[in-house]
Design a binder for these strands. Sequence first.
DNA 1: TTATAAATGTTATATTATTACATAACGTTA
DNA 2: TAACGTTATGTAATAATATAACATTTATAA
Lengths: 132, 132
Amino acid sequence: MQKEHSLSKNQKIIFDLIDKSGEPMKAYSILFNVQKKGIKAPLQVYRALDKLVEIGKIHKIESRNAFIACQNSSCQISKATAFSICESCENVSEISNSKLSKYLSNFSDDSGMKYSKYNLEFFGLCKKCKSK
Amino acid sequence: MQKEHSLSKNQKIIFDLIDKSGEPMKAYSILFNVQKKGIKAPLQVYRALDKLVEIGKIHKIESRNAFIACQNSSCQISKATAFSICESCENVSEISNSKLSKYLSNFSDDSGMKYSKYNLEFFGLCKKCKSK
DNA sequence: TTATAAATGTTATATTATTACATAACGTTA
DNA sequence: TAACGTTATGTAATAATATAACATTTATAA
Ligand SMILES: [Zn+2]
Ligand SMILES: [Zn+2]
Ligand SMILES: [Zn+2]
Ligand SMILES: [Zn+2]
């Protein structure tokens, strides 16, 4: 069981927005959406995003410069993330596959490097887009 | 055996620079370095980068917004890329591990999605940085 | 309480990437 | 060769993403 982080005011506003949206959101779109709540500057958004990423409540989809709420309740620290991304409709979902995460968490090669973290992004066409 | 792409003038200038550097380069650093060769505008750089990525001569390190020459001669199309990134010295190298690439290329889950491409980034400390 | 760390507010600026439009070079085939 | 479509180039302007610097406030805990 992990320590429950209590979010600060800005962190909560921004997390709630991302979580409710259910899809990746971009920083400036977040900013636009929270201006009525008094968050006026990019930096306020980025600071909250940084913290939320750090504690694993959200993840950054690197290839899209966007942020999505963690869909995997057991993933409290963002050290092992995997996503599937539809290149047509841009739907993103977090992959929760214990075989995959075990395989990658235990991966090592002959470089002498110890990997403490990974991020994997799969691309393709989702069911809907495939059948069009 | 794959078709050899003949690079255009700008593509060649930019590929040669990235290839010689041996490490990830950022777009505006590339721009700065090729201005003496007549490439003056960001768009000229980004267009060449796009093409070089498309044909697999370079890869984008998404978490760093940087571009590195393909270190794996057999990787002509960027559909299956894996990198190790040192979070201390920022050294990046392309992982060439057939088991890993087979595992990931064949990965499928119950989402009904067909994955045609992936990008994996491992993070940690390299040998040098570990021993400091 | 007092110290420390974490979070906030604000302005300005840096960095990364694309739009829009005009022109030139190249490859194919009639 | 001439015409055509495709790819690449040049140039200016601007959009989108992210951080620096500094002042202040709020939360946490010894
Ligand atoms: Zn997660
Ligand atoms: Zn789709
Ligand atoms: Zn490669
Ligand atoms: Zn290192």
